[in-house]
Simulated scan of single mutants.
Amino acid sequence: MGLPVFSQEWAEQWKEEINKSEMFQKYGAKWEWPLVMKMNADPAIGLDKDRFVYVDLWHGVCREARIAQPADVDSVPYMISGDAEIWKKILDRKLDSIAALMTRKTKLERGNMMKLAKYTNASKYMVEAATRVASRFPEGIE
């Protein structure tokens, strides 16, 4: 059945998967900042408010992953947002996360794209780790 995507339990499993990834450790070795992933609200599918997950990444390790608090959302150097249907396509491996960002299917709400671009491989393996978490999306997402 899976864990509700972007929930506390989901975030904890994602952290475990990131930390198992030798490829993330390799390509994320110089990554030194947290980020927030945002799923945009969509009342039509029962998602009445935005969902936020905070991940603290440091030198190839995920030190923490959890539901983002308002202070996290206000202060993180990077935040990436997207609609539930886009996140589902990414986690189902039907849409590449980097391509989604470049085509504005997801949005870099905060952060420097040029700096983030240096970590394309690390991002790829971070998202790949998320695909290994059994995820449940709100009803009506295809």
Score class of each variant (00 low, 15 high):
7 S>I: 01
7 S>M: 05
8 Q>D: 15
8 Q>Y: 11
10 W>Q: 10
13 Q>V: 00
16 E>G: 04
17 E>I: 01
20 K>I: 03
20 K>G: 01
23 M>E: 14
23 M>C: 01
25 Q>K: 13
29 A>R: 11
29 A>V: 03
33 W>V: 00
33 W>S: 04
34 P>R: 14
35 L>E: 14
36 V>W: 10
38 K>V: 08
40 N>H: 08
40 N>P: 02
42 D>A: 13
43 P>D: 13
43 P>H: 09
45 I>E: 07
45 I>R: 07
46 G>R: 12
50 D>A: 05
50 D>T: 07
50 D>W: 12
55 V>E: 14
58 W>Q: 10
59 H>M: 05
61 V>A: 03
68 A>F: 13
70 P>F: 01
70 P>H: 09
70 P>K: 09
72 D>A: 05
73 V>E: 13
73 V>K: 11
74 D>P: 06
74 D>W: 04
74 D>A: 14
78 Y>V: 15
78 Y>Q: 13
78 Y>S: 13
79 M>Q: 14
80 I>V: 15
83 D>F: 04
85 E>M: 12
85 E>L: 12
85 E>K: 15
85 E>P: 01
87 W>G: 04
91 L>M: 10
94 K>G: 02
95 L>R: 09
96 D>F: 06
97 S>D: 09
97 S>V: 14
97 S>N: 13
98 I>E: 12
98 I>K: 14
98 I>G: 02
100 A>F: 07
102 M>P: 03
104 R>S: 00
104 R>T: 01
105 K>L: 12
109 E>F: 11
111 G>I: 10
113 M>G: 00
116 L>W: 11
116 L>G: 05
116 L>H: 11
120 T>H: 13
122 A>E: 02
122 A>Y: 03
124 K>V: 09
125 Y>R: 06
125 Y>Q: 10
127 V>N: 04
127 V>S: 04
128 E>G: 07
130 A>D: 05
130 A>R: 04
130 A>W: 03
135 S>H: 03
135 S>T: 02
137 F>S: 00
138 P>M: 13
138 P>G: 09
